[in-house]
Amino acid sequence: MKFCKMFTLIELLVVIAIIAILAAMLLPALTRARESGHKTSCIGNLKQCGSYIGMYAVDSNGCYPLQYANWKVGGEQTWASFLNNRNRNPHKTKQLKNVVVCPKNKGDIDKEGKNILASEQWVWRAYGMLRAHDGEYMDSVTGRQKKASTEFQAGDTMSARILLGDTAIPNYEGCRQSTYKMFRTNTDINNGQAKLNLRHNDTANVMFCDLHVGSVTKTAANSKYGFKMIIYKDVPIQLQ
């Protein structure tokens, strides 16, 4: 008569423990891989934003879109609204809204419980634009200042000035909400204005005024680009 050898309880617990250890070892790697995927996708989005803004500038006498405007006719508009208003094609609008919103924010919902991409909120949850470098303040062809701004760095080259970037509003939705505006020198965390958000493996993806894309680290945020407050690990911190 043949007997089947059964696992003992101790052997079974050992196997479970080994599986748990392997899972614990793999989970951080899988998380980093997922974050790297988000970062790569975000960089791709910003590059496409650069193409859209470049085409907008060609059609607008060299001017980039305004960061924000509140008109009697048309109401409030953001830089994403201005890009979208240049077309009346729903398919292009669908393409645009998937480009101007960071991949990590595409699951966000608005106040009515709708996904932001299914509502008009997507134009308010787009990448942040630094107001000092929008079409009102800067000549995108020469890089010269058209209008006084405390945010403008006259000595910066076009390739060193941030135009768009990952942003969030402190103390709102755990510092996750993207927003259409971003300021360089603001230090008040409770004023509702957005800050640079280092959401991708402790870096923020940004697009510069010459339309190339790069990443900003915590150290470079202050020393190289002059930010005095950023969002780091979902917490607003002062750099100066």
Rank of each mutant, 00 (worst) to 15 (best):
N70D: 13
G74P: 07
G226I: 04
T150L: 08
H200L: 09
I230C: 05
N115E: 07
G37R: 13
P28G: 02
Q240H: 11
N222A: 09
G50S: 01
Y68W: 15
K218M: 11
N190I: 01
V58K: 14
Q240R: 12
E35N: 12
K218Q: 08
I116T: 08
Y137V: 03
G107S: 13
L96W: 06
D59V: 01
I230P: 06
K181H: 14
M229S: 05
D108Y: 06
E112F: 12
K47R: 13
A154R: 15
N190H: 14
N190W: 11
I19W: 01
P103N: 09
D234P: 01
Q67T: 14
F227M: 11
S60I: 00
L130F: 12
Q48K: 15
G50Q: 05
F3Q: 12
L164Q: 03
T185S: 13
A29K: 15
G165A: 09
E76T: 12
C42L: 07
V235C: 05
L198R: 03
A220E: 14
N186C: 04
G54R: 02
L239H: 09
V141Q: 12
K104M: 12
L22C: 07
K2L: 10
I230R: 03
N171D: 09
G226F: 03
C4Q: 11
A204E: 01
N87K: 07
N197R: 09
V216C: 04
K5C: 10
C102Q: 10
Y137L: 04
S51V: 15
H212N: 11
Q240M: 08
A126W: 00
K114R: 15
G128T: 02
C49T: 03
C4K: 14
W71R: 14
L164R: 06
W71I: 11
F183K: 06
K114L: 11
I53K: 00
G113I: 08
S223L: 11
K114V: 02
W71E: 15
F82Q: 15
L163D: 04
N45A: 04
K2A: 10
N98M: 09
K181Y: 10
V216Q: 06
N205H: 01
I162D: 05
K218Y: 12
S149E: 08
Q177E: 11
I116D: 04
V99A: 07
G37T: 08
G192P: 08
L83A: 03
K47S: 11
